[in-house]
């Protein structure tokens, strides 16, 4: 176990920082009732991953491009038609998962779906860390604006918040977090790393601030314990991380705060 951490410091550190961003982001996603949306949003990465593998370019670039297009599509559709994001994401992204599975092959498909161990190059690590830092700073600095625009767009508007732009930034933060987490958790389960820690935090926290902190801590713990467990028992990383998180969720139900 320790050899794994010592030999893969970039991998572990990037996984843990992604978990912090996912935990914080989850608090807002759950509040926005986007919990279900953040799950299939990761699926749209798959056709991009598949195409990148076929074209022999870095899979993360393919996945990133696909996610970016997906986020912009959701944002503009939602803005124009007023259809809920969940419906759109449900339809478009399930299709993406289907198409992606068709064009990605064998072992690569399993790795893309469930996450794996792979070396993280120093450049990838530092770029990833910079993106995570931007996401975390954005979420913490804009937490008041995000909270208000989620609770009531009208109240947000009368308080002078540009809700459209804020929504777009939030979606971009979501896809960037999903993209960075793909390697560790996989396309199928990355959404769970956003949802489950936030769901635990909602059960335990007595304030929004508490929910953000607890969400981040649970996400970090799940990733750390999941990666160590996966390495020790030779299991795929994504399912192990999500199983740990889900176990904590069940425990949190026992300690749910009184009404």
């Amino acid at each position: 176990m320790l050899t794994f951490i010592v030999n893969n410091p970039y991998y572990i550190l990037l996984a843990l920082s992604t978990a912090v961003a996912a935990g914080i982001l989850g608090a807002f996603a759950v509040m926005r009732r986007m919990a279900l949306a953040s799950d299939p949003i990761s699926h749209i990465a798959l056709p991009g991953l598949g195409l990148a593998l076929i074209l022999k370019i870095n899979p993360l670039i393919g996945a990133g491009a696909a996610l970016l297009v997906g986020a912009l599509l959701i944002w503009s559709f939602e803005k124009r038609t007023g259809i809920s994001t969940e419906t759109l994401i449900g339809v478009v992204f399930s299709l993406a998962l289907a198409v992606g599975s068709l064009i990605t092959s064998g072992e690569e498909l399993i790795d893309a779906l469930l996450g794996n161990y792979s070396s993280v190059a120093p450049v990838e690590f530092f770029v990833g860390l910079a993106i995570i830092a931007i996401i975390i700073i954005f979420l913490l600095m804009k937490r008041h604006e995000l909270t208000l625009s989620i609770l009531s767009p009208e109240l947000a508007k009368t308080s002078g918040i540009a809700t459209d732009r804020l929504n777009l930034y939030f979606l971009l933060a979501l896809v960037a977090t999903v993209l960075l987490g793909l390697r560790f958790v996989g396309v199928l389960l990355m959404g769970s790393l956003v949802i489950i820690p936030a769901a635990v935090a909602k059960n335990l926290a007595r304030s929004m601030r508490g929910m953000i902190v607890i969400g981040a801590v649970i996400a970090v713990f799940s990733v750390l314990a999941g990666l160590l467990g996966a390495s020790y028992f030779n299991l795929p990383t994504g399912p192990t991380i999500v199983t740990v998180a889900a176990g904590i969720f069940v425990l949190s139900l026992l300690r749910k705060k009184p009404d």
Binding site: M31, L148, L151, L155, S159, G160, K202, N203, S207, M208
Partner: peptide, 23 residues
């Protein structure tokens, strides 16, 4: 009205702080 999920732990202070902070 304001539709809020009953389990959401946002406090009254945090709710009012959003506008105080923005303005």
């Amino acid at each position: 009205r304001l539709v809020i999920e009953r389990a959401l732990p946002l406090t009254v202070q945090e709710f009012l702080d959003t506008k105080i902070h923005v303005l």
